[in-house]
Write a protein that binds this DNA or RNA. Structure first.
Lengths: 226, 226
DNA sequence: ATTAATATATGATATATGTCATATAAAGTC
DNA sequence: GACTTTATATGACATATATCATATATTAAT
C-alpha cells in the first residue's frame, strides 16, 4: 500500500491541507486502483460513497441526454478529486466518470473525508473553493453554449485543451480526444464538429494530422473563440 | 434594526444552522436594504465582500455575453443567499444580480460569515450543500442547452417557473418575466421565444393573456420538455 | 386623453446546424 | 497480411433558429 504522505499529487488538490497524522490515517483506508482507458469509474445515478483522488491520467465527466448523446461537462486531470459533489450532497452521482487514458486513482471512503471536514477547517475551505471554481466554470460554459456559435465554442475548446493539457513535441494536443468527444464537449453533432475542424484548417488556424490536432494560429482561434 | 433571530426567512437558508448568539451578533453588523424592481444588487466584476440574504422578492443572476445579450443563469428567491460563491472564492462576482421585483435584502459582511465558517460546522456544511446544489443545477442546464431544442427548453422552463414560483388566482405564472427575459433563460433570440410561445398556444399547452402565461396542459409541456 | 416609448407578435428571409448517405482512412482482429 | 470494424471526412439536403422588417398591443409620459 502506497503512502499518501509521499504522494506528490496530493499537493495539487484540497488534500494539501491535511496534516501528517491525517494522511497516515487516510493511507490506511484508501484503495488504490488502476483504471484502463475507456473504463467507467462511476456512473450517473450510482451511489459513490466517497471520493476518488486522481493520481494519474485524465477522465471525462459526462451526462447522457434524452437524445442519446453524451455531453461532456468537465475534464478531470491528475491532482483533482472526483465525486465530491455527490458525496457532500448525499445524492447519487449526477455525472458519469469515464477514463480517457489509463489512470491511477485512489478511493477514499466518505466516512474518512467527513471526519476531516469536522476536524480541519482548511481542508473544508479548500473543498469549498474547488466546488466554487467548478460552479464558476459551469456557469461560463453554460453562457457559452447559450450565446456562442459552434465554431466559436470549438475554437475556445481547442485553446482550453492546449492550455490545460499541453502539447506533444510535434506540437499536437497532448490530450487526444475523438471527434465525437470534442463534439460532446461543445454540444454539437460529430459531423458538424469535423466540418468546422476542416474549416479551421482551411483558414490556417490549425493542422490536422490524422486524429491529431495542431494549433498553428493561436491568435486566430482567440479572435474566433471569444 | 430588525432582529435576525426573528426573521422567518432565515430558516430556509444555510443560516438556519446558526445559534442564538450568532444571530444576535449578525443582527448587529448586517445592513437591511430595499431594492426596487430593476435595480442592480451587484454587478459582474464587482467585489462583493459579503453575502446578501434575500428576505423578499426575486432576482436574476445574469452574465453579459460577447454578443451583448444577457444570459440568465439562475433565479434567486426569498430565503436564499446571494454572492456566496464570489465570497468563498475570494474573487469578483462572476454574475450580476438584478431585482425582478421589489426586494428586501440584508447584507452580511464577509468577516462575519467567515467567522461562522470556523466556529460552526453545520453552517459551513449547509453552505457547501447549497453550492453543490447550484453546481448540479448548472450542470443540468448546461446539458439541456447543449442537447435540447429551444422549444424543449422553453417547455421545461415554463414548468420550472410554475413549480418554483407558483401561480396567481387566475392560474397565470406568478413570476412575470418579459419575453426577452425568458429568451435569456433558454438562450435564444426574443423573437424565437415569442414564436415558440405562440406555437405552444396553438397546441393548447398554454394560454397567453397579454404578458401573462397560463399553463393549461402540464403533461404536454412535460412530454415536450423532457 | 394624446402622444411617445416599449413590448409583443408575425412574416419573410438568411444562416447555422443537424441528418442521412457515402467515401476514405485508420485501427483492431484473426 | 487480408479482413472487419470503427473513425474521419465530405456532399446533399432538411430543419431549426437568427435576423430584419413591420404591425399591433401595452405601458409610460406629458
Amino acid at each position: 500500500m502506497s503512502k499518501c504522505e509521499q504522494c506528490i499529487v496530493r499537493e495539487f488538490s484540497s488534500l494539501k491541507a491535511l496534516g501528517k497524522d491525517e494522511l497516515l490515517k487516510m493511507a490506511e483506508c484508501k484503495t488504490s486502483m488502476q483504471v484502463k482507458k475507456g473504463d467507467i469509474i462511476f456512473e450517473e445515478g450510482e451511489n459513490v460513497n466517497g471520493v476518488f483522488c486522481v493520481k494519474d491520467g485524465v477522465c471525462k465527466m459526462t451526462k447522457l441526454s434524452q437524445n442519446g448523446k453524451d455531453q461532456i461537462v468537465k475534464l478531470v486531470k491528475k491532482g483533482e478529486l472526483l465525486g465530491q459533489r455527490s458525496m457532500i450532497s448525499d445524492e447519487p452521482a449526477n455525472l458519469s466518470a469515464v477514463a480517457l487514458e489509463d489512470m491511477q486513482v485512489c478511493f477514499i471512503p466518505k466516512s474518512e473525508i467527513m471526519g476531516f471536514f469536522n476536524q480541519n477547517n482548511n481542508f473544508s475551505m479548500n473543498v469549498m473553493k474547488t466546488i466554487c471554481g467548478d460552479l464558476k466554470e459551469a456557469d461560463d460554459i453554460l453562457v457559452g453554449l447559450a450565446q456562442k456559435t459552434v465554431k466559436e465554442r470549438l475554437a475556445h475548446t481547442l485553446l482550453y485543451l492546449e492550455e490545460t493539457f499541453g502539447i506533444n513535441p510535434d506540437k499536437s494536443l497532448k490530450l487526444q480526444l475523438s471527434r465525437e468527444e470534442i463534439a460532446g464537449m461543445i454540444g454539437t453533432a460529430t459531423e458538424s464538429c469535423i466540418r468546422l475542424l476542416s474549416e479551421l484548417k482551411k483558414e490556417n488556424a490549425i493542422e490536422l494530422v490524422g486524429k491529431k490536432i495542431i494549433i498553428t494560429d493561436r491568435n486566430k482561434l482567440l479572435r474566433i473563440g471569444n
